[in-house]
Amino acid sequence: MSPREVDNQEWEEIRSRIDSLAGAVFVLSGGALSISIGLVFGHTELLSREPTAGAVLVWAWWLLVSPIIAFVLLKVNVIVQKYILLDHPKKHASVRPVTNGISWLFGVTGVLCFCGGMVCLVVVAQLLAGV
């Protein structure tokens, strides 16, 4: 194999792992949102015991919906990047650093928001449990 083929295989493996991470974040964020929203609307008296929990829960919801949006935008950015590569190959070299930077921005933002949202849900659980 040529070095270019090996490099391409490495990037394909990295891309596969990124897709797996994005899929896991979609599922976990969506599940956490569904469960927490369902619990709150099913048991509104829980938040009256600890007013701070409501504010933290709203932050958790926003932080959990943010990675879903970020990873959708990341996928759109990858599609745009591939479109430019296929239809405008001469422009691709000049545009690639910008689209790669945008991809990194969406990816890192998504992961950080996901982690923050999950931490906020744990804080809400601790507040409601009185720990």
Rank of each mutant, 00 (worst) to 15 (best):
I102G: 00
S29K: 05
A53F: 10
F71D: 03
V111R: 07
L74S: 10
F114H: 08
S94F: 08
V6T: 14
F114R: 08
G23A: 15
V78Q: 08
S66P: 03
R15T: 06
V76W: 12
V108C: 02
V122D: 01
I79R: 09
W11N: 13
V98L: 12
V119Y: 11
L127A: 04
L128I: 02
M1R: 13
L57G: 09
V58P: 00
L21Y: 09
I14C: 09
Y83M: 06
G30H: 14
P89Q: 07
V40K: 11
E10Q: 14
V95S: 04
P67I: 15
G54W: 09
S66Y: 15
V80K: 13
W104I: 13
T52V: 10
G38T: 03
L39R: 10
R49L: 09
I102N: 00
L85T: 00
S16M: 09
F41D: 01
G30D: 02
L74V: 02
S16I: 04
F41W: 03
K82R: 13
V95M: 11
W59D: 03
T109P: 00
V27E: 02
V98Y: 13
G42Y: 08
I79E: 02
V131L: 14
L28W: 08
L64E: 01
V123W: 13
V124A: 06
L73Y: 10
P51V: 12
M118V: 15
T52D: 04
V78L: 11
I35T: 05
A70E: 01
G110W: 11
S36Y: 08
N8A: 15
G101C: 04
F106Q: 02
F71C: 06
G110C: 06
K75T: 03
L86H: 12
R49V: 03
W61P: 01
K91I: 05
R17P: 01
G23T: 11
S48G: 02
T99R: 07
Q9W: 12
S94M: 06
A125K: 04
V78R: 10
N8S: 15
W61M: 11
K91Y: 06
L112S: 07
E13F: 13
V123A: 08
V56F: 10
E10I: 15
T99Q: 03
V78M: 09
C120G: 04
A22D: 00
T44S: 09
I14Q: 05
G110R: 14
K75P: 00
T52S: 10
M1T: 12
